[in-house]
Design a protein around this nucleic acid. Sequence first.
DNA 1: CAAATAGTTTTGACTGGTCAAAAAAACGAG
DNA 2: CTCGTTTTTTTGACCAGTCAAAACTATTTG
Lengths: 223, 223
Amino acid sequence: MASLTVENYLKAILQLAAATNSEWISTGQLATSLSVAPGTVTSMLKTLSESGLAAYKPYEGVCLTKAGRTLALRVLRRHRLLELFLVKTLSLTWDQVHAEAENMEHSVSDMLIERIDEYLGRPETDPHGDPIPSADGLMRGNATAAVPLSTCQALSKVRIVRVLNQQPDFLRYLSETGLEPGATALVELNSMEGGLISAKVGRKTVSLGHQAAEQLLVETVPQ
Amino acid sequence: MASLTVENYLKAILQLAAATNSEWISTGQLATSLSVAPGTVTSMLKTLSESGLAAYKPYEGVCLTKAGRTLALRVLRRHRLLELFLVKTLSLTWDQVHAEAENMEHSVSDMLIERIDEYLGRPETDPHGDPIPSADGLMRGNATAAVPLSTCQALSKVRIVRVLNQQPDFLRYLSETGLEPGATALVELNSMEGGLISAKVGRKTVSLGHQAAEQLLVETVPQ
DNA sequence: CAAATAGTTTTGACTGGTCAAAAAAACGAG
DNA sequence: CTCGTTTTTTTGACCAGTCAAAACTATTTG
Ligand SMILES: [Mn+2]
Ligand SMILES: [Mn+2]
Ligand SMILES: [Mn+2]
Ligand SMILES: [Mn+2]
């Protein structure tokens, strides 16, 4: 029903809102995120508003309605299930699946998504640790108390649960060093002054800048 | 590069040409096949012609160029590999996969298709027995001497290799009766006058009208 | 062969999505 | 507050894809 374009706008609004902890998103943020001219966004926001998918206040920004949020979550669900499916069945790597899912998310039926969900055993997170919205339109898994690796003290034992920066280069670097969701690491050093953090992963010790370590969400593991 | 619409037109031209054994396809045929107004087709044919994908002669019709044929075959390859992949991994039925692949065929990368091809073991035919164009742009498998079931004499033993009519209802009927590609059948009766043909499939005998039997391509099996 | 019919192209219009550049509004120092 | 900067909206234009209906060709058929 909703066009590919509308789906992309709604998903972008949802994700920007999540990333910035604020319901309202500005025209400019959307334009940047979608690589589109600001005027283009303005006109699309009017369209979304007219179709009841978003509330638009000129010069203030946009906010999803119930219906818009539901649709956005459905697209996000398709996206994340597809990512996991491609990793599981075809061994694509986690740095490849995003681009692939970005296109496919608009062209698979609900029936197919249900089959994929079933096949994967109703997973809760995608390959990047991002939560998969449930079939009934809820965003799950925001309960877990994950914190950025950059905030972890030396000697704490942690498990990586989510990666926020999903640039392919960064993801490949993480794969090389073993810092993937599910892996556990022992923090050996966290130096404010040096701006870096070292952790033992497997038998190797890897060091990351704070900037990078902020992008890794971990949960602490009882020793 | 080529839009979804262009891909659909090219694929339709290719398949109409195959179905009618003639390079040239009329505006009207395309309009029917794509469920679009004739005038719409005319203007798209000019576009295809300008981009070097097809040769268009007003009032005569259209014919794919080398480039157009290559692109059409790539789309068809994606379509058929996707169909088989969905059947194999998610147990979709052969009457469901066409609709699904019709949309997905435009949104999967060459890399993904290569992975699927590898995963499936470089298959030569899709779930309907249609040949899968090769990665280097050739239509394979036109060598086999398959004939319509309707032409088979009584007492001949045949293997079903391809189904031409792919209406979901028809396909489901075939599944019920076991007349799927790969299955063998023993022709018990082929009556011109009665206009029907009976064959033993497994332990059951099934009868088909000639119209339906024409849609089943078979190869004879040495007794 | 001419008239009727069938098929095709043209015309004019519309929608959805986009951009560049001009105009307007909001913001933030001083 | 007021001027200059940033952000947003408006304007006018464009492209792809589509339709309905009129105009035109081609093909039948009497
Ligand atoms: Mn997308
Ligand atoms: Mn993801
Ligand atoms: Mn298609
Ligand atoms: Mn098929």
